[in-house]
């Protein structure tokens, strides 16, 4: 899937590259690091450029290096994609609140698809349980319980609200990031350059939906469970000290497939499609169902629409 436009001009700032090289050499001299092969690789990672500043050749090299690294780690042949966005596509997501039964199948499908850390546990989707009959109180997120553990769901008198990244059109996290390590792609997905994030966690403070998660230590995933179908902006394994987030399974959706959570949902409550296509499922539900977005008053303009199917 790796196709690089040879016509795009590289705009690497030469002065900057020179500076980095000089700085690298200086640091090596100071710390007395021998000019061994592995030391060179370390510096390559340390002074890697921002994803959007990579020239096609540099991207090639990076992909090769990362594929080798991840293959070695997982013992599988890893395919690291850099599939770009499609023309005329703006992704949207629908979730049928009247259908969701709170079974958390989506949570674990997401964990497996997106190589989320198993220990410490990172879940990109959080399913909140609310009291149906709590009429005298306002229903607010403080009343939601993500830790419910029933024998069977749906439990009597409860309803469920799964929350993950809302892929806002006016994303607070992108505005907050001090290093432009997170940005919105043309198809509307907010992605991260995990190699550029400095781990300041300002985006976590800025996100109104608790959708961003920090790797508090080196994430652990059993080698045999690593999903080898990866995207460089999506589900490749993360390292400690960086923030990660839902990318609507960019490694799948950019190839035309549904997200893992859509396919995992046993009640078909999850819908995904192209907002610019008038015949898509997502447009149908927006035009025919009652939809709402979370925290609309913040004008983050989520592309994640909750709706009532009945």
């Amino acid at each position: 899937m790796k196709k690089i436009d040879k016509n795009t001009t590289a705009c690497a700032s030469h002065s900057r590259r020179k500076f980095l090289k000089a700085a690298g050499a200086g640091a090596a001299a100071l710390t007395g690091v021998p000019a061994a092969a592995n030391a060179k690789i370390d510096f390559e990672a340390l002074f890697q450029k921002h994803f959007r500043e990579l020239s096609p050749e540099e991207l090639d090299r990076l992909i090769e290096r990362l594929e080798k690294k991840y293959s070695k780690r997982s013992g599988k042949e890893v395919k690291l994609g850099v599939t770009g966005p499609m023309d005329d596509v703006l992704f949207g997501y629908g979730l049928d609140v009247s259908r969701c039964i709170g079974c958390r199948r989506c949570v674990y499908a997401c964990v497996e698809e997106n190589n989320q850390s198993r220990s410490p546990e990172i879940h990109w989707i959080r399913v909140l349980e609310f009291e149906r009959t709590d009429v005298l109180r306002r229903i607010d997120f403080e009343d939601g319980n993500p830790f419910y553990d029933h024998e069977k769901v749906p439990a009597e008198g409860k309803f469920y609200l799964p929350v993950a990244c809302q892929q806002c059109e006016n994303p607070e996290c992108v505005k907050a990031c001090p290093t432009q390590a997170t940005w919105q792609e043309p198809d509307g997905i907010i992605v991260m350059d995990y190699d550029w994030c400095i781990g300041c966690r300002y985006c976590m403070a800025a996100c109104p939906y608790g959708a961003r998660h920090f790797n508090w230590t080196e994430p652990q995933i059993p080698a045999e469970e690593i999903n080898p179908n990866m995207h460089i902006l999506g589900n490749r394994p993360r390292e400690h000290g960086v923030v990660e987030k839902c990318t609507w399974c960019i490694q799948r959706t950019r190839q035309g497939r549904y997200t893992a959570c859509v396919e995992a949902c046993p009640v078909g409550a999850r819908k995904f499609g192209n907002l610019l296509d008038p015949d898509s499922e997502i447009r149908y539900l927006m035009e025919n169902k009652r939809t709402f977005v979370l925290k609309a008053e913040l004008d983050t303009r989520p592309k994640f629409f909750y709706f009532y199917g009945d």
Partner: peptide, 27 residues
């Protein structure tokens, strides 16, 4: 001490890094 990746602090600096100015108040 708070940065998860202190060795990448230079991403914050102009010219060598990509500071998100002026929208990011940390920047």
């Amino acid at each position: 001490a708070d940065l998860g990746r202190p060795e990448r602090f230079w991403h914050l600096l102009p010219v060598v890094g990509t500071p998100n100015l002026p929208t990011s108040m940390i920047g």
